[in-house]
Amino acid sequence: MSRRKRASIGTSSSHSGYWANAWGRLKKNKSAIVSLILLILMILVAIFAKYVSPYPYDLQNPAEAYQSPSAQHWLGTDNFGRDILSRIIYGGRISLFVGFFSIFFAIIVGGILGAVAGYYAGKIDNILMRTMDILMAIPGLLLAITLAAAFEPGLRNVIIAIGVAEVPFYARILRSSVLSLKEQEFIEAARCIGASDKRIILKHIIPNCLAPIIVQSTLGMAGAILSVASLSFLGLGIQPPTPEWGSMLSNARQHILNYPHMVVFPGLAIMLTIFVLNILGDGLRDALDPRLKD
């Protein structure tokens, strides 16, 4: 008898949270899962580059320059006889690191600005968002180039240069989330039981706008990786001999007709990473949409 009653409630038996539900939906999306596995693999390879790569990234061997892919050098060698596979593995370190931290920077800065603009509205909102609009009006890469050129080249400055260009997107997302959440009665209810502004923002608003931020950050990371490659290609990003996919491309450019493998493999690495992040981002967007019930 009691068992029957319990069954009639149905859904409540699985005390599944929002994130568990989202994970369940993501698991069903095969391409997103393949992308996730590939991404984790890339991250692991980048972290353990020292142990995974067959050669040191800066080991020059003029006798073996311009070699096509072979058993010794799986992806061939470059003009200094350096192993391209090893350089791609180490380059991935830089790309993923810069991609991750520039987006992290953008989320923190953009998130705070957007949340403040949305929550307090009025004049602050106007000032902040018009500034964001101005930032957005400048093409992202151009802004990054300007910033990168103004500072000394280097890892930290590249991260900031790319991060700044991404800030407005997160500010906008957070502001619109906060604006729509502010109208919800549970925010009023929280105020009614005496919750402080800080508590309302941290406990009631932020957790409810994580989903769009996560989606945007995966997609944004792809963009950031492309930006760092572009900056390095232009010589404004990571400086040689540190390997970076963009600077590898830039270096191989002169040899494209004779030794195309020097261009193809770093290019493929960029493409694959961005492809994986985009597919994963799309998958997350579907999985985190609460309107989609499984």
Partner: peptide
């Protein structure tokens, strides 16, 4: 003085469990 709200859907934080929703006021005070 407290308030009971109109919309039972938007008046509860979707990310909180039933227990934490009811307990929050006790926590705050």
């Amino acid at each position: 003085m407290q308030m009971v709200f109109q919309d039972p859907f938007s008046s509860l934080n979707p990310r909180m469990t039933v227990k934490s929703i009811i307990q929050e006021a006790m926590e705050i005070h």
